[in-house]
Simulated scan of single mutants.
Amino acid sequence: MNATPDADATPGSERLEKAVRTAEAALIEYEIAVETFRIEVENFSRLHHQRLGPMYARLDELDAQVAEAVAARTGDPEDIRRAAEARGAVLPMPRVEELFFGWIDSDGMLPEAQAMLNEQPVSPPSRVRPTEETRKAYRDLVRRAHPDLAQDDAERERREAFLVRVNKAYADGDLAALTALAEEWEAGPLPEPVAELLRSEELYARLEWLAQRKEMLAARAAELEESAIGAMLKMAPEDPDALLDEIAEQLLGKVAERERELARLTQVQD
């Protein structure tokens, strides 16, 4: 049955409703962009620590050994001070994650720890940026299941819980999981039909909420971009995985250089 026309059924209210729908679609696209960047920052951080952490540790140890060799040769108080500083950098004060054996950091429970507690397999990301096919599947699924499209609180909660699983699959670069989630969404309950007419007050309130959420997302995006990892990602926007390889190559070169310097100093002392 069609709704009874009333004063709200005017060209003006129709334009307002169209503006709301356009703003909703734009916000979802922006939120997808922010979330994909957040996942890339997180993946880059984890891979940076896993792949390059040992190289940084080796470089710090070699710096300390070189400084100690120089101090032993010269006996200069300033060289001795530098050697002590270098050795101190190799043995820093324990960080939060070290105190909790790698289960927690200053931002909360690490993904690997959460997986272990939930009896799930621990699967660190294989790369920073999932494949283009995976990214497309993710974007299409978020567009359909986004909580902002819900008509009531229960539907919003269902969508929010579903998107947690979608984001996890995307972060893991798991195209098969995203495909299964898409099939699950298609087989799920249909959303309630949108009311044909909305009050102007509700539309204006919705536009205001959308604007506020856009501001919040913009602040989150700026925070990610200004972080140390975000700044590194901006150096290689097309292929962040190649940036990891480049940094690894540079670190290997520095390690080799320090080893040659240490060998030279050791030979001089002998």
Results as ranks from 00 to 15, higher is better:
residue 107 D to M: 01
residue 113 A to P: 11
residue 111 P to R: 05
residue 177 A to D: 12
residue 114 Q to P: 00
residue 230 G to W: 07
residue 250 Q to T: 09
residue 166 V to L: 06
residue 141 L to G: 03
residue 242 A to Q: 15
residue 133 E to K: 04
residue 199 R to H: 13
residue 8 D to R: 12
residue 270 D to A: 14
residue 146 H to F: 05
residue 63 D to W: 05
residue 145 A to P: 07
residue 60 D to V: 09
residue 104 I to L: 13
residue 133 E to Q: 15
residue 172 D to M: 13
residue 256 A to T: 09
residue 192 E to W: 01
residue 174 D to E: 11
residue 109 M to L: 14
residue 230 G to N: 00
residue 120 Q to M: 15
residue 242 A to D: 14
residue 193 P to H: 03
residue 94 P to M: 04
residue 115 A to P: 06
residue 254 K to W: 08
residue 104 I to G: 02
residue 202 E to P: 02
residue 267 Q to T: 12
residue 163 L to M: 04
residue 16 L to S: 06
residue 28 I to S: 05
residue 126 S to R: 15
residue 156 R to F: 10
residue 146 H to C: 11
residue 121 P to V: 01
residue 14 E to P: 00
residue 170 Y to E: 06
residue 265 L to A: 07
residue 132 E to L: 14
residue 139 R to G: 00
residue 79 D to N: 14
residue 154 A to C: 02
residue 47 L to A: 04
residue 128 V to K: 14
residue 189 P to L: 00
residue 196 E to R: 07
residue 230 G to F: 01
residue 112 E to F: 03
residue 17 E to I: 04
residue 200 S to N: 11
residue 131 T to S: 15
residue 154 A to Y: 05
residue 211 A to Q: 12
residue 122 V to I: 15
residue 232 M to W: 04
residue 170 Y to F: 12
residue 270 D to N: 15
residue 88 G to T: 09
residue 77 P to G: 02
residue 196 E to T: 05
residue 145 A to S: 14
residue 105 D to T: 07
residue 47 L to N: 10
residue 168 K to T: 06
residue 87 R to L: 10
residue 218 A to P: 11
residue 139 R to K: 00
residue 122 V to F: 00
residue 106 S to P: 00
residue 171 A to C: 07
residue 133 E to P: 00
residue 159 R to H: 04
residue 171 A to W: 03
residue 257 E to C: 03
residue 129 R to M: 09
residue 245 D to Q: 01
residue 72 A to N: 10
residue 246 E to D: 06
residue 58 R to I: 14
residue 231 A to S: 13
residue 41 V to D: 07
residue 69 A to C: 04
residue 223 E to K: 12
residue 10 T to P: 04
residue 242 A to W: 06
residue 230 G to Q: 01
residue 260 R to I: 13
residue 158 R to Y: 08
residue 240 P to C: 04
residue 58 R to E: 12
residue 93 M to Q: 09
residue 20 V to S: 01
residue 99 L to G: 11
residue 227 S to Q: 09
residue 38 R to H: 01
residue 259 E to D: 08
residue 155 E to Y: 07
residue 65 Q to N: 11
residue 46 R to E: 13
residue 26 A to D: 13
residue 48 H to K: 13
residue 142 V to A: 08
residue 119 E to M: 15
residue 188 G to H: 03
residue 88 G to N: 09
residue 178 L to V: 04
residue 160 E to W: 01
residue 231 A to N: 02
residue 127 R to P: 09
residue 116 M to H: 10
residue 55 M to R: 02
residue 82 R to T: 03
residue 181 L to I: 01
residue 249 E to I: 08
residue 125 P to K: 04
residue 21 R to F: 09
residue 118 N to G: 04
residue 259 E to A: 15
residue 164 V to C: 07
residue 234 K to M: 15
residue 117 L to A: 10
residue 262 L to F: 12
residue 139 R to T: 15
residue 191 P to N: 05
residue 83 A to N: 11
residue 77 P to Q: 11
residue 76 D to P: 04
residue 86 A to S: 03
residue 80 I to K: 02
residue 154 A to Q: 13
residue 233 L to Q: 06
